[in-house]
Every structure is written in C-alpha cells, then in structure tokens.
Amino acid sequence: MAACKLNRCAWVSDDPLYQRYHDEVWGRPEREDDALFAKLCLDGQQAGLSWITILRKQKHYEDAFCQFNAKSIVTMPEEERARLIQNSGIIRNKLKINSIFKNAEAYLAIKEQGSFTDFIWQFTDGKTVINHWKTQQEVPVSTAASKNMAKALKKAGFTFVGETICYAFMQAVGMVNDHTTDCHCYADVCKEAIR
C-alpha cells in the first residue's frame, strides 16, 4: 500500500528539508526577539534567490554570525568581518553581508527602547492575520502592513527589508497564516494563531 502523501502549499518541493520547514516552522507564531532578528536577517539574504538556498545555508550563517547574537555581531573584529566574503557557506555578496551588521546595530537600538517583538508585531496589531487562500495564486507578495513594516525598518536603519521581503518574513513568523486551506498545516496553524 502506498504511503499517504500529505497535501502541502504549492511552493513546497519534495526536498525533505523544505518540507520540514514548511510543516514545523513556516506560519507558526514567533514571539522571541532574537529569533525574529535572525529570521529577518536570513530573509534579507534571500533577496533574488529561492528560500531553499538560504535554508540550506542557515547553519553556516549561524556559525558565521555568532548564532545571530546581535551584540557579538556588532563587536566582531574587522579582520573577521573582512574574511566573511570568502566564506563559501554563505552568500558572498558584500552588500548582503554588511546588511547583517547594519541590522544588528538597528536591532540593538530598538531593543534599548523596548521589545523587538512588540515593534514587529505592531504591524498586525499583535495578532495573526488568518487568511483563507484556496490557491497559491491568490497569495499576495506584499500588503499594506508589509509596506508599513518595510518603511519603519528602513527608518530604524535596517537594510534588505523591502515590502516583499517583509511579507515573506510575516508569513514565516506567523504574523499571517498564508497556508492554503487545502494544506495539512492550515488548521493547526489557525489553532496556534495569536488572537
């Protein structure tokens, strides 16, 4: 008897890493400051690439950027920063590498004022937006909320945070539930939604 194939969102390939990410992480609410910072940095690295490319390199990014500890990132010695362009485990793009340093500074500045979680989640009023998309074609690439988030993050000093990247980030950290209604994760993610 053939194994039952789970119905997933159309963007997920047969790659087990991608499937695990979709099933266990994507769309599940994240409310921890450092985890949100790490995810925002990784989403910025995705610009112009597929998410699976970054997902495969995530461990290398964590090792290269001090497990995304912002204080350690901003105090990284110049020689170490300069060597990152030779690190084949990450995307060797100078602007993208430098963005993580800029983002760490901006993140720490926000943290001095309060919670980064509150700063990020304000764009959905602290709640998960539960969508009811039947097909992948219905899912937007940006929204008014992601445009507002991008604007606020840029003003705060972040880079690689355009409205499309911000919307992908919002989907990933459970600010919106964009699993299609036929996806096996949809109901569970609805239950985990912050209301």
Score class of each variant (00 low, 15 high):
residue 103 N to W: 03
residue 122 Q to K: 12
residue 125 D to K: 14
residue 158 F to P: 11
residue 179 H to T: 05
residue 123 F to A: 03
residue 142 S to E: 15
residue 170 M to T: 02
residue 164 T to E: 08
residue 172 A to K: 12
residue 162 G to S: 07
residue 164 T to K: 15
residue 182 D to S: 14
residue 137 Q to W: 13
residue 145 A to Y: 08
residue 128 T to W: 01
residue 169 F to Y: 09
residue 95 L to V: 06
residue 126 G to H: 09
residue 105 E to F: 13
residue 134 K to I: 04
residue 148 N to T: 10
residue 181 T to R: 12
residue 150 A to F: 02
residue 109 A to T: 13
residue 116 F to C: 01
residue 155 K to H: 13
residue 123 F to C: 01
residue 137 Q to K: 15
residue 102 K to F: 14
residue 172 A to R: 13
residue 106 A to N: 06
residue 170 M to Q: 08
residue 152 A to C: 02
residue 164 T to G: 11
residue 132 H to I: 00
residue 94 K to H: 13
residue 137 Q to V: 15
residue 127 K to I: 02
residue 132 H to C: 03
residue 121 W to Y: 11
residue 131 N to G: 04
residue 170 M to G: 04
residue 156 A to C: 03
residue 98 N to V: 10
residue 169 F to H: 03
residue 181 T to C: 10
residue 135 T to M: 08
residue 182 D to W: 13
residue 119 F to D: 01
residue 123 F to G: 00
residue 99 S to K: 10
residue 128 T to F: 01
residue 135 T to G: 05
residue 102 K to W: 11
residue 173 V to C: 02
residue 165 I to E: 04
residue 123 F to M: 05
residue 118 D to F: 03
residue 129 V to M: 14
residue 106 A to F: 02
residue 141 V to T: 15
residue 160 F to K: 04
residue 105 E to D: 13
residue 174 G to L: 02
residue 97 I to L: 06
residue 123 F to T: 00
residue 167 Y to W: 01
residue 156 A to D: 07
residue 100 I to A: 01
residue 149 M to Q: 03
residue 112 E to K: 15
residue 154 K to Y: 09
residue 105 E to T: 14
residue 171 Q to T: 07
residue 124 T to R: 07
residue 140 P to V: 07
residue 130 I to W: 11
residue 158 F to W: 05
residue 143 T to M: 02
residue 169 F to L: 00
residue 110 I to Y: 11
residue 124 T to P: 08
residue 133 W to H: 13
residue 104 A to V: 03
residue 155 K to G: 09
residue 171 Q to R: 12
residue 127 K to P: 08
residue 128 T to M: 03
residue 130 I to T: 10
residue 99 S to G: 07
residue 159 T to Q: 08
residue 142 S to C: 13
residue 121 W to A: 02
residue 101 F to Q: 00
residue 176 V to H: 15
residue 130 I to F: 10
residue 101 F to I: 02
residue 134 K to N: 13
residue 117 T to S: 10
residue 96 K to A: 05
residue 94 K to R: 15
residue 95 L to Y: 10
residue 120 I to L: 03
residue 162 G to Y: 01
residue 144 A to G: 14
residue 126 G to E: 04
residue 107 Y to N: 00
residue 126 G to W: 08
residue 131 N to C: 06
residue 175 M to Q: 08
residue 153 L to Y: 06
residue 159 T to M: 05
residue 159 T to V: 09
residue 168 A to M: 12
residue 153 L to S: 05
residue 142 S to K: 15
residue 120 I to N: 11
residue 95 L to I: 09
residue 157 G to F: 06
residue 116 F to K: 00
residue 98 N to S: 14
residue 141 V to M: 14
residue 180 T to D: 06
residue 128 T to H: 03
residue 100 I to S: 01
residue 105 E to W: 09
residue 181 T to L: 04
residue 164 T to S: 10
residue 164 T to Q: 11
residue 160 F to Q: 07
residue 111 K to Q: 13
residue 171 Q to S: 07
residue 177 N to V: 00
residue 173 V to P: 12
residue 106 A to Y: 06
residue 158 F to I: 10
residue 130 I to E: 11
residue 126 G to K: 07
residue 112 E to N: 11
residue 107 Y to P: 09
residue 164 T to D: 08
residue 113 Q to I: 11
